[in-house]
Amino acid sequence: MAEDIKEKLARYRTAPFDSRFPNQNQTKNCWQNYLDFHRCQRALGAKGQDPAPCQWYFRVYKSICPIEWVTTWDEYREEGTFPGKI
């Protein structure tokens, strides 16, 4: 499975279609991938595993989300006031 993810990351250009978010407005897609990335890193880090599979979520949210949102969310996480459940 790790090799499959590495192949996908090597071929990655931009976020693929996600049937959970079929509309033009990709705000929820951005939010969900941001949360998934940080949840993935936290879960794999707690198990002592390599967090490389989490890079998929990172690349998706980096290509979809406006930089200002990500910067603000990162600041909220550092302050401990992030509204999402990670």
Rank of each mutant, 00 (worst) to 15 (best):
residue 74 D to Y: 03
residue 75 E to P: 00
residue 69 W to S: 12
residue 82 F to A: 11
residue 39 R to P: 02
residue 81 T to Q: 09
residue 60 V to D: 00
residue 43 A to W: 14
residue 76 Y to P: 00
residue 15 A to L: 01
residue 83 P to T: 04
residue 72 T to E: 09
residue 24 Q to S: 06
residue 3 E to S: 13
residue 42 R to M: 10
residue 13 R to M: 10
residue 6 K to N: 08
residue 68 E to T: 04
residue 21 F to Y: 15
residue 25 N to W: 12
residue 17 F to E: 14
residue 65 C to H: 00
residue 57 Y to N: 03
residue 82 F to E: 14
residue 80 G to S: 07
residue 16 P to H: 03
residue 71 T to G: 10
residue 74 D to P: 08
residue 75 E to F: 04
residue 2 A to V: 15
residue 18 D to Y: 01
residue 5 I to E: 10
residue 13 R to K: 15
residue 37 F to D: 08
residue 56 W to D: 02
residue 24 Q to D: 12
residue 35 L to I: 15
residue 68 E to G: 05
residue 45 G to T: 12
residue 54 C to N: 05
residue 53 P to A: 07
residue 42 R to F: 09
residue 59 R to W: 14
residue 26 Q to W: 00
residue 77 R to A: 02
residue 15 A to S: 13
residue 62 K to S: 13
residue 70 V to P: 02
residue 71 T to W: 03
residue 64 I to T: 05
residue 43 A to F: 11
residue 72 T to H: 13
residue 49 Q to W: 13
residue 66 P to L: 02
residue 36 D to H: 09
residue 57 Y to E: 04
residue 63 S to N: 08
residue 21 F to H: 09
residue 60 V to C: 01
residue 32 Q to N: 12
residue 81 T to E: 07
residue 30 C to L: 08
residue 11 R to S: 11
residue 1 M to Q: 15
residue 6 K to T: 10
residue 79 E to K: 15
residue 14 T to H: 11
residue 1 M to G: 08
residue 27 T to A: 13
residue 60 V to R: 12
residue 36 D to L: 14
residue 8 K to T: 01
residue 83 P to Q: 07
residue 20 R to L: 08
residue 40 C to M: 08
residue 48 G to P: 06
residue 9 L to D: 03
residue 35 L to S: 04
residue 2 A to R: 15
residue 83 P to R: 04
residue 36 D to Q: 09
residue 70 V to D: 08
residue 40 C to W: 03
residue 13 R to G: 00
residue 20 R to S: 11
residue 44 L to P: 07
residue 37 F to Y: 11
residue 41 Q to F: 01
residue 85 K to P: 02
residue 82 F to N: 15
residue 73 W to F: 15
residue 51 P to D: 11
residue 5 I to A: 04
residue 42 R to H: 10
residue 46 A to G: 11
residue 74 D to Q: 14
residue 7 E to T: 08
residue 66 P to S: 05
residue 19 S to W: 13
residue 15 A to H: 01
residue 76 Y to N: 09
residue 54 C to Y: 02
residue 63 S to A: 13
residue 10 A to P: 05
residue 43 A to S: 09
residue 34 Y to V: 10
residue 33 N to R: 09
residue 41 Q to K: 11
residue 55 Q to N: 12
residue 39 R to M: 09
residue 59 R to S: 07
residue 8 K to S: 07
residue 78 E to L: 08
residue 42 R to C: 09
residue 30 C to A: 05
residue 20 R to T: 05
residue 25 N to D: 15
residue 25 N to C: 01
residue 85 K to S: 10
residue 17 F to W: 10
residue 46 A to D: 06
